[in-house]
């Protein structure tokens, strides 16, 4: 009897959260599920279509292309940001005045909103008036992100690395700071090399924060929208049309709610799947 009463009270306590999550996550998601299985006409006319949109999206070349671009983008920035972030964190001073200076400098890019980063780099990289673009061209590089896909990609990656490497740096720095001095002393007494210290002390101790860093960077970069939108709107051509850009084009540009909803769900499941794979791989062999 008493156990039952306790349960009821517990429900009351979690109710606000349930309502909140329902309104901001479950209901919108279910709306998307609803759209994804129907054909929509004006005047709110709906016809049930089953799995038609899913089949269409999954077999469309356009989706394959943007997914491939998305994967490319994400893996390039992960391959740059994670090692670079760890390297910077290792090189940063541990204490004193300069440690604070470095931390503030590192935190700065993270405070800037996405669209501002996009606008900044857009102007910075303009081939005719931008500091970067003009310098590159003056140095003899043929650089124009509005015309060449390669330039657009390079700019986009530089932008993301500039904006988000700091996150990996700060997480790694926190991880490194939590290693007691005694570990380094013990390694010195053993006569361990700098590489051995990194491989057997720092890296294992960084494992948890790196798991978080990789997951966060993966999810964030997979969702990237604002930067390519502000830079070239997905161009030149479709060369920087990443998944979310493509999705918005279908949903709002063409107002194809059914395919857009199906694509959203597929997109969502892909992120979920990759995150799960990352997490499983990185925490495999974890000490029980």
């Amino acid at each position: 009897m008493s156990a039952k009463t306790t349960n009821q009270k517990a429900w009351l306590l979690v109710a606000p959260v349930v309502v909140l999550v329902a309104f901001n996550a479950v209901i919108p998601l279910m709306t998307v599920v609803n759209y994804s299985v129907q054909e929509t006409f004006g005047d709110n006319l709906f016809f049930f279509e089953g799995m038609k949109w899913f089949e269409e999206v999954l077999s469309s070349e356009r989706f394959h292309d943007s997914l491939l671009r998305q994967l490319q983008f994400t893996f390039i920035i992960l391959a740059i940001e994670v090692p670079l972030g760890v390297a910077i964190a290792l090189a940063m001073p541990r204490r004193g005045f300069w440690a604070s200076v470095c931390l503030v400098l590192m935190a700065m890019p993270l405070l800037i909103p996405w669209n501002v980063v996009g606008a900044m780099w857009n102007i910075f990289a303009l081939p005719d008036i931008g500091l970067l673009g003009k310098t590159l061209n003056a140095m003899g590089f043929d650089y124009n992100f509005t015309r060449q896909p390669f330039s657009a990609w390079a700019t986009l990656i530089a932008m993301d690395v500039w904006h988000w490497t700091s996150l990996v740096v700060l997480l790694s720095y926190a991880g490194l700071s939590s290693i007691p001095d005694a570990y380094y002393q013990a390694a010195r007494i053993d006569g361990a090399s700098a590489w051995a210290v990194f491989r057997y002390i720092q890296l294992p101790k960084l494992k948890h924060v790196l798991t978080i860093a990789v997951l966060l960077r993966f999810m964030d970069s997979f969702n990237i929208y604002t930067e390519p939108f502000v830079l070239t709107g997905g161009g030149p051509g479709n060369s920087t049309t990443l998944l979310s850009l493509d999705l918005v084009k279908i949903a709002l540009g063409q107002f194809d709610l059914g395919p857009a909803a199906a694509m959203s769900l597929i997109y969502f499941l892909i992120i979920l799947l990759f995150s799960w794979i990352f997490y499983t791989v990185m925490t495999r062999g974890e000490d029980r």
Partner: peptide, 20 residues
């Protein structure tokens, strides 16, 4: 240098290589 002195040390914290 410390590694040439042939000393060993045990600390208050339990210091072991975590993934070995």
């Amino acid at each position: 240098a410390v590694q040439k002195r042939n000393v060993s040390m045990v600390y208050q914290q339990f210091i072991n290589y975590p993934n070995m």
